[in-house]
Design a protein around this nucleic acid. Structure first.
Lengths: 339, 339
DNA sequence: TGACATTATGACACCGGTGTCAGATTTGGA
DNA sequence: TCCAAATCTGACACCGGTGTCATAATGTCA
């Protein structure tokens, strides 16, 4: 036997037609029990595997989803945001559970990625994941929708956002963080992150945070805010710049754990003690957070559930079923950085 | 236009035959410059993308690699070894650079994964990644080889190992760790990990470690060893059991960072100070390691280079070129846990 | 002008499955 | 015993490209 066995080879050895082989292997009720048994037998002996390309070509679907990861343009090669890595893990598992393969690809936000995977029939649908500038992506979503591409996004659900999203309740998560700080009596609070429409997730976290303070009659001081993208480095520099401007506070809410970890480093360098002088709360609950010193209080996003929901919703979309934006409940994890 | 455009549609609008379209789009020198221009023009207007399934079927190759991740059977759903996650990132990037897609899949060591991806023509080759019981996998490597599957493994290169591997110089890395501890004067050393042939990587690390001690005339005490797989939990329990048996030491070498982090937790619980009472050295340099308290001294594996080499070697294998096992140089990262 | 190489294009088989349809065989009931 | 329904199987077109071969059109040189 040269090369891989085809269904014709099975047909030959099993003494049936190729059509029957195809049916038997897919356990069609049309084939006789005995015939099916024999076909399976021969297939196993020849180590036959259905050619996915032929099958996909004929059926016009690929049983494959594509995961497109967008990176912050500044993040360097080696380090990928651990939160997305965790999502990747859960998405992979969810796909496997549903019998789908997963294609993974990193995209820079500038590249011309729209629909490439789906148009070329490599994937039945797309999962988009990344902290990037939302305004950059928005027009691309339009393109995808115009081309009837099936896709779901991880991210904030913004009003009039054209795409289907699964996201953590960022607003509610921000509130949880605020209520915790209020409960510990730390109302003089700084915020590190990006509270603009460029980052709708961070924006929602900040809104929830601010509103919870407002509800207690506390106004956040706008000067005690610094812009940062989701890297440790960025959080470090943002915090340093606040301190350099002689801005002080007794608590700090970071839009992500990486930012929080960078902030803690900056605070330590300035001889400011965490949690004694400043309480710090992050967002994401990445694996590192429980190991930093002090362990980081944070708002957990359930990545396992998130991955499952992304895949579920996408599959529904592919099957033409109704789907709605999904909001996952956040959970506050209290650790040493705020008590 | 209903459905996606095909090359026949392009042919129709461009006023040429479908064959010419196919050639033009692949920039074959056989087609006239002017014709090619026109075809590209029309293709762009119709947002045409080559159907990968049809193309793959005809050419009998997929421009796709599959990454199979094996998990320690005990690792729970949510947590994936961060070292592998880092590898995943670098492999993804390496694939993109070479113009290949990457299929990602988690496998439990028991499952019947052999060659499935390649036989079904979903991927041209396989990358195998995981800390698992080597003895479990060995027979499967044989099967893969018998079926002429193209694959590379991340892992120790054992004598007579039938597969092609890329790995860190684990033996050399163990030596680095030992020499560092010797230089700090801590010769009463414990080892946490699995120094058996079940885990050739850990085994090699231990061998290098032991030999470096021997070279200085120091014999490691075999009683000061405890078995662990690469999880924080396992490292914690292994260390606890040593301490519970009243075994003491002034330094500790863990076969992986996760184990080291667990060990540090156990030491702290027992009121043993790191690094004052015990110096700790890990292996991998996962992202967490620089954030734990104290920051962990460890042997770094260059994941970026590793991913690149895995992909490079696999592609060579696919193209039928000669390839040899690759050993990557480790690097000692000295941090607070050992000074 | 004729012989021949060069260039550009189209027709067609082919990759390996899946789905449809027709036909063969068996079963069941009157 | 005969007809209709049920069961099973094979032939064949088809998915959308790629590669080969034949052929038409154009150019070159004697």
């Amino acid at each position: 036997m040269k090369g891989k066995a085809t269904s014709f080879d099975i047909a030959h050895y099993a003494g049936v037609s190729q059509s029957t082989v195809s049916r038997a292997l897919r356990n069609s009720p049309l084939v006789n029990e005995e015939t099916r048994r024999r076909v399976h037998e021969v297939a196993k002996q020849l180590n036959y595997k259905v050619d996915k390309n032929a099958s996909n070509l004929r059926t016009q679907q690929s049983s494959t989803l594509a995961l497109l990861l967008f990176e912050d343009p500044t993040s360097d090669e080696s380090q990928i945001n651990p939160f997305f890595l965790a999502m990747l893990g859960s998405i992979t598992r969810a796909c496997a559970k549903e019998g789908y393969d997963l294609l993974v690809s990193f995209q820079s936000s500038s590249s011309d990625w729209q629909a490439d995977y789906e148009d070329s029939h490599r994937a039945d649908g797309l999962i988009l994941l990344g902290y990037g500038d939302y305004l950059d992506y928005q027009p691309k979503f339009k393109t995808l929708i115009d081309q009837h591409t099936k896709f779901v996004c991880w991210g904030a659900s913004v009003d009039n956002r054209p795409d289907l999203t699964v996201s953590c309740d960022n607003y509610g998560g921000g509130k949880l963080a605020a209520e915790h700080l209020l409960a510990t009596g730390r109302t003089d609070c700084a915020f590190i992150g990006d509270a603009s429409e460029h980052s709708p997730e961070f924006f929602a976290r900040y809104q929830g945070f601010k509103d919870a303070f407002l509800a207690k009659g506390v106004n956040l001081n706008e000067r005690k805010m610094a812009n940062a993208i989701s890297t440790e480095e960025s959080g470090y520099h943002a915090t340093r710049s606040l301190l350099a401007n002689n801005i002080r506070f007794n608590s700090l809410f970071a839009a992500s754990d990486l930012i929080a970890i960078g902030a803690i480093r900056a605070l330590k360098e300035a001889k400011i003690k965490v949690p004694d002088d400043v309480h710090v709360v992050g967002f994401d609950n990445i694996a590192v957070s429980s190991f930093v010193n002090p362990p980081l209080t944070t708002v957990q996003q359930d990545t396992t559930l998130a991955g499952q929901m992304l895949v579920d919703n996408l599959l529904k979309l592919i099957r033409g079923e109704d789907v709605e934006n999904t909001l996952l409940p956040p959970r506050l994890i209290i650790r040493g950085s705020s008590v």
